[in-house]
Amino acid sequence: MNSISFDLTRFDAAIVDLDGTMVDTLGDFAASLNRMLDDLSLPHVAPAAIETMVGKGSEHLIHSALVHVMAPDAAADAKAQALFDRASERYQHHYLAINGQHSAVYPGVIDGLKALRASGLRLACLTNKPTSFAKPLLVDKGLDGFFELVFGGDAFERKKPDPMPLLKTCEALGTTPARTLMVGDSSNDARAARAAGCPVVLVTYGYNHGEPVRGVDADGFVDSLAELAPAALR
């Protein structure tokens, strides 16, 4: 673990990712996608495959799942695109119905958020998940009270790994990127942070597109958000 995460006096705020960072939502994704696939008379996709698709927004997730179950058909991509609108409507229907029912807050998240707040940092949640999914999930898991702002993947013109969402979130918080810590679980978060000029710490337990997270260019890694707390608060 790099010492940057312990020196919270360097920061005025923290931007925290949601899926794979605070909440293990793989069960929600699997339930919603497979109900969507049932509606389209397509085979199910296994959770292990879904885990590699998570993190780039619902559009990417839905399209990837469709291509996965249609493979090795050479025209799978085109067929997935043709089905996309119907699939997206069914996915949103099912996700809103089960949001939070098959997910759980990771150990250490509550303690980590409390420590960040106790250190005087302002907090924002920034996720590629649609805002209409993210806000109810935070409420359901008792996490909403930690955050002044919540921005989903539809809040800005572009999603992470583009730096725009981080820059816009810093602007909304009234903080500078250099004094705003990004806390995430994947290369998407790290790339966005690097491009925006935000220091970045990644958790080791989340979804990083099936790749080892410690291979990502980040300022530090933690096995639990509780590790972000200064020693005096742990």
Rank of each mutant, 00 (worst) to 15 (best):
Gly57Asn: 08
Ser119Phe: 00
Lys56Tyr: 14
Glu171Thr: 07
Arg122Gly: 08
Arg179Asp: 04
His63Asn: 14
Val200Asp: 02
Leu167Arg: 07
Lys114His: 13
Lys160Pro: 09
Glu157Gly: 10
Ala49Glu: 14
Asp144Glu: 13
Tyr207Phe: 15
Ala196Ser: 09
His102Ile: 08
Ala231Tyr: 04
Ala31Asp: 11
Thr180Tyr: 02
Val105Phe: 01
Thr21Leu: 07
Leu228Phe: 01
Gly206Pro: 06
Ser32Tyr: 07
Met182Asn: 03
Gly152Gln: 09
Ala74Val: 15
Gly142Glu: 05
Gly120Asn: 09
Ala104Phe: 12
Pro212Val: 08
Ala104Cys: 13
Ala65Val: 06
Leu83Cys: 10
Leu202Val: 11
Ser186Leu: 07
Ala190Gly: 11
Leu166Tyr: 05
Val54Ala: 12
Gly20Phe: 03
Thr127Lys: 01
Ser58Trp: 00
Gly210Thr: 11
Leu40Ala: 04
Phe11Asn: 01
Leu233Ser: 05
Ala172His: 04
Asp7Tyr: 06
Asp7Val: 09
Met1Glu: 07
Gly55Leu: 06
Asp38Arg: 13
Tyr106Val: 07
Val16Gln: 06
Gly153Pro: 09
Lys159Ile: 13
His68Pro: 03
Val139Glu: 12
Asp185Lys: 01
Tyr91Ala: 09
Ala231Ser: 11
Pro136Glu: 06
Asp154Ser: 05
Lys129Gln: 10
Leu121Thr: 01
Val139Asp: 13
Ser3Asn: 10
Asp77Lys: 13
Val183Met: 04
Leu181Val: 08
Asp144Ala: 15
Asp219Trp: 01
Gly100Asp: 02
Asp73Thr: 03
Thr9Gln: 11
Arg90Val: 06
Pro212Ser: 08
Thr131Lys: 13
Asp140Glu: 11
Leu149Ala: 13
Tyr91Lys: 11
Lys129Arg: 10
Ala155Cys: 14
Ala13Asp: 06
Ala178Asn: 08
Ala115Gly: 11
Pro130Trp: 06
Val69Gln: 11
Val109Asn: 02
Lys159Gln: 15
Val54Tyr: 10
Gly210Met: 11
Ile98Thr: 14
His60Leu: 12
Leu121Met: 05
Arg234Pro: 00
Gly197Arg: 07
Lys114Glu: 12
Lys79Ser: 12
Pro212Asn: 10
Ser3Gln: 09
Pro199Ile: 06
Phe147Met: 06
Ser224Arg: 11
Lys129His: 05
His94Asn: 03
Gly20Ser: 08
Leu123Val: 08
Ala80Ser: 10
Thr131Glu: 14
Gly206Gln: 00
Ala48Ser: 15
Ala14Lys: 02
Asp144Ile: 15
Leu167Ala: 10
Ala104Glu: 14
Phe11Lys: 04
Ser32Arg: 03
Pro199Tyr: 00
Pro161Gln: 07
Ala87Val: 01
Asp185Thr: 05
Asp189Glu: 03
Leu40Gly: 10
Leu42Asn: 08
Ser88Gln: 14
Asp28Val: 09
Ala190Arg: 08
Asp7Pro: 03
Tyr95Ser: 08
Val23Gln: 10
Glu59Asp: 15
Arg214Tyr: 01
Ala30Phe: 03
Lys79Gly: 05
Leu138Ile: 01
Asn208Phe: 00
Ala231Glu: 11
Ala232Met: 09
Ser88Asn: 15
Pro161His: 07
Leu42Ile: 05
Ile15Met: 00
Ala75Thr: 14
Gln101Glu: 13
Glu171Leu: 11
His93Leu: 14
Cys170Tyr: 05
Asn2Thr: 15
Phe11Trp: 01
Gly145Lys: 14
Cys125Ile: 00
Val105Gln: 02
Phe146Cys: 04
Ala196Phe: 02
His60Arg: 15
